[in-house]
């Protein structure tokens, strides 16, 4: 996936300004930024939920327009996208069917077992605890073996086990040649998972991103850059 000089205006407000970003296959790119910096907007553009006001956004070499859906894209948003009245199994089966996965019910059952919800797969999602619901949502995002993962603060509210699971799934995706765009406001997650970390501040993305090849510890570098943006330069662009 790549974005070139992408801008998004919502109302009169320019939420994203000339964001340029590449998420190459086999890597995890993290966009780190405070709330309201335009992270979610960026992800929604990447998911094809919105069209950019300016600039060019490509996935798998294809320009993303207003109505862009791709079965290879997996999207995990703030909320679960699940139906409370349906069981976990029915929910996942539905999404598997939606994505045209062969033998949807078996795929759904396997994923639920992997996230540790086998015992609850026939329970309606309404009765799941918060953590269980998040595990199910996680399974949902991976239902069609995505090659481009778009994750919006995926670690929020996950327990240790689920965090490890997500880490493992992300690594598995990149190992299989997939690309991951992860959005977070947590430095630790960014430093742990990212191959590159871009810092988003008031709709502008730090360019170039911090990479693992640079000198010094990766985490320290990310932290330093982030601090510099956050406190140093003050209200840029205002």
């Amino acid at each position: 996936m790549s974005a070139v000089a992408v801008a998004k205006r919502l109302g009169e407000r320019l939420v994203l300004r000339d964001v340029t970003l590449a998420v190459p296959a086999g890597s995890v790119v993290v966009v780190l930024g405070p709330n309201g910096s335009g992270k979610s907007t960026l992800l929604k553009l990447a998911a094809g939920l919105w069209a950019p006001s300016r600039g060019r956004l490509e996935r798998f070499g294809q320009v993303v327009g207003t109505e862009a859906t791709d079965p290879r894209v997996g999207y995990l948003g703030h909320r679960s996208f699940l139906y409370g009245a349906l069981s976990g199994l029915d929910n996942l089966t539905f999404y598997a069917r939606l994505y045209g996965v062969p033998r949807p019910r078996e795929r759904a059952a396997r994923l639920l077992a992997e996230v540790g919800l086998r015992r609850f797969q026939h329970e309606p999602v309404r009765r799941y605890s918060r953590g269980m619901e998040q595990r199910a949502a996680l399974a949902r995002a991976f239902v069609a073996h995505p090659q481009l993962l778009l994750l919006d603060e995926p670690y929020t509210g996950l327990d240790v086990g689920a965090t490890g699971l997500l880490d493992q799934w992300i690594r598995r995706t990149t190992a299989a040649g997939g690309a991951v765009l992860l959005i977070t406001h947590h430095l630790d997650e960014a430093a742990r998972m990212g191959d590159r970390v871009g810092i988003l501040w008031r709709g502008r993305l730090e360019d170039p991103p911090v990479t693992r090849d640079g000198p010094g510890g990766f985490r320290e570098q990310v932290a330093r850059t982030y601090e510099a943006r956050f406190h140093g330069s003050g209200p840029s662009g205002a």
Binding site: L49, E67, T69, D70, Y75, G77, H78, S80, Y83, L98
Partner: peptide, 19 residues
């Protein structure tokens, strides 16, 4: 209301195929 409760509509929008 069912689609909006847990933002499932977004899930449908992202899913492949014509909206």
């Amino acid at each position: 209301e069912q689609e909006a409760r847990d933002d499932a509509l977004t899930g449908l929008l992202v899913a492949p195929g014509d909206r």
